[in-house]
Amino acid sequence: MAGEAKQLFDASEVALHSSRKDCWVAISGKVYDVTKFLEDHPGGEDVLLHASASGDATEAFEEVGHSTSAISMMDSFLIGSIKGYVRPSASKATDPWGLDAPPNSRSMQGNEGPPNPNTFLDFLLPLFVLGLAFAAWYYLTFVSKNY
């Protein structure tokens, strides 16, 4: 498709192509025909079919962490782009609560940056276990011998 002009598609039109015989995926505003790649996808064809049916597969694609070779392979499946596509992070209207995640953040928080500071419970729990062990030792050593 390198020499052909890419087409513009409506998001609703892309959603119509979500079967094993005709599967399109929208990622970052670009439309890919992955029908021929379904059987070869390392995650299985169901992953692509689900991504196709869910509409915009950008978030799911980024969460997986694809290799650079996988990303470069995508160009061979590119057939067009979504009309009027706006990146979700650029629009505050996408999240009614105003809790947009920062760009490049992952859905699993806490894996980046320093660990949380110690809490009082982190200190108290080992002391409780130590006290329980001492009480068991005292009981078994002194109290149970008297019976």
Rank of each mutant, 00 (worst) to 15 (best):
S19I: 03
R20C: 04
K21E: 14
K21C: 02
C23E: 02
C23R: 05
C23Y: 11
V25Y: 10
S28L: 15
G29M: 07
K30T: 07
K36E: 00
K36F: 00
L38P: 02
E39L: 11
E39R: 14
H41S: 06
P42I: 04
G43F: 00
G44W: 04
E45Y: 04
D46I: 02
L49D: 01
G55V: 06
A57I: 07
A57D: 03
E59Q: 04
E62K: 10
E63I: 01
V64T: 13
V64K: 07
G65T: 06
T68P: 07
S69Q: 12
M73I: 03
M74G: 01
F77A: 15
L78P: 01
I79W: 12
I79V: 15
Y85M: 04
R87Y: 08
R87C: 13
R87P: 08
P88S: 08
A90K: 06
A90G: 01
S91I: 05
T94N: 05
D95S: 12
D95L: 02
P96F: 00
P96L: 05
G98Q: 04
D100H: 10
A101L: 09
N104L: 10
R106L: 13
R106F: 12
S107Y: 10
Q109T: 11
N111H: 12
N111M: 15
E112T: 06
P115I: 15
N118F: 14
T119K: 15
F120H: 10
L121N: 04
L121E: 06
D122F: 12
L124G: 07
L124Y: 12
F128E: 06
V129R: 09
L132G: 15
L132E: 05
L132K: 08
L132S: 14
A133I: 11
A135Y: 11
Y138H: 15
Y139G: 12
T141P: 02
T141Y: 03
T141V: 09
